[in-house]
Nucleic acid binder design. Structure first.
Length: 300
DNA sequence: ATACCGACCTGTCAGC
DNA sequence: TGCTGACAGGTCGGTA
């Protein structure tokens, strides 16, 4: 569900709200599907960790953590109930000053329906909540995911993914990704090993703006067409970030607010509706198992 | 090496 | 009202 602009919006919100905060303790639902790290390891890394930064890598959210001697801290830290949250204890010695402080990462992929929310602890716990991290500031970070396609993991090494960031890559490298690929350009755009962060909505929308049919073989695009695609993709992603992402059904940012880019979609979700340029009905076909929308008149 | 296809899950909505 | 099937922002692993 959330693609690059939605994840970027969430990350920007989190940066405003949780940088410098400390995860005091962790609750996990017990559903193991979303966990790529064992629950004990999740707790060992996250409890007591200070959030030093939040970044996006493709569709992944990465929290950069500073952890102390976590095992010691977990044992020493007094356990408090949710009811006593108002009486915040004085914080531990800042972890950053510990000679044993090390870096770790909390990595989240939202899948199709994942949400990451920061809010007050007395907010009702939504159905399908799989993680609650109580923060030193008194708020909670929660992960909610009905379909459980999302993934949660912790890592003590730097997190790596393949694929280029669509907003950072230059045109020459971009066009090189598609050279000699016989796959439909739509499939290539969705391939996270080539570009990371583009999903179904923004693949369709960038192709529409570039005037290219989704079934075109990637290798068949001329240099001029690749240039149009490159510029359309960057434009669409930047405009979508500015609009706070697309809320097609349920997407909300870390404050629970929807995005507004769905009102600027030209083809996605508009099957049968008139093309905004020529009036022809928008077509929907299935490519690589995904709905693909295009104007049969404007896209060649 | 590359490319489709079903599987993984739950929820919603249209149609009967 | 209720059942059924199609569909949903994503990614895997198996198979062709």
């Amino acid at each position: 569900m959330p693609e690059l602009p939605e994840v970027e919006t969430i990350v920007r919100g989190l940066r405003q709200s949780v940088i410098g905060d400390v995860i005091e303790d962790l609750w996990l639902s017990g559903r193991t599907q979303p966990l790529k790290s064992p629950p004990e390891e999740m707790a060992a890394v996250l409890e007591g960790a200070r959030i030093a930064g939040v970044r996006r890598m493709g569709k992944h959210i990465v929290f950069d953590l500073v952890i102390g001697r976590s095992a010691d801290r977990v044992i020493e830290r007094p356990r408090r109930t949710k009811q006593s949250k108002a009486s915040l204890r004085s914080p531990d010695v800042p972890i950053t000053r510990s000679p044993h402080a090390v870096g770790a990462h909390f990595i989240i992929h939202l899948g199709m329906t994942g949400r990451l929310l920061v809010g007050p602890p007395d907010a009702p716990v939504a159905k399908h909540t799989h993680l609650i991290a109580r923060l030193q500031s008194g708020r909670e970070l929660r992960f909610v995911d009905p379909r459980m396609f999302g993934k949660l993991a912790v890592a003590r090494e730097p997190f790596e993914t393949s694929g280029a960031e669509p907003l950072d890559i230059g045109f020459e490298l971009f066009s090189g990704l598609f050279r000699r690929r016989k796959t439909p350009i739509k499939s290539a755009l969705l391939n996270q090993k080539l570009l990371r962060g583009v999903g179904n909505i923004y693949a369709d929308e960038s192709l529409a703006r570039a005037g290219l049919r989704p079934r075109r073989r990637a290798a068949s695009l001329t240099r001029a067409e690749l240039r149009r695609l490159y510029e359309s993709l960057q434009q669409v992603l930047n405009e979508a970030i500015a609009a706070g992402g697309s809320s097609v059904s349920n997407y909300v940012d870390s404050d629970g607010e929807p995005g507004f880019f769905q009102f600027q979609h030209r083809v996605y979700g508009r099957e049968g509706e008139p093309c905004l340029t020529c009036g022809a009905p928008i077509k929907r076909v299935v490519i690589a198992g995904r709905s693909s929308h295009y104007c049969p008149n404007c896209q060649k």
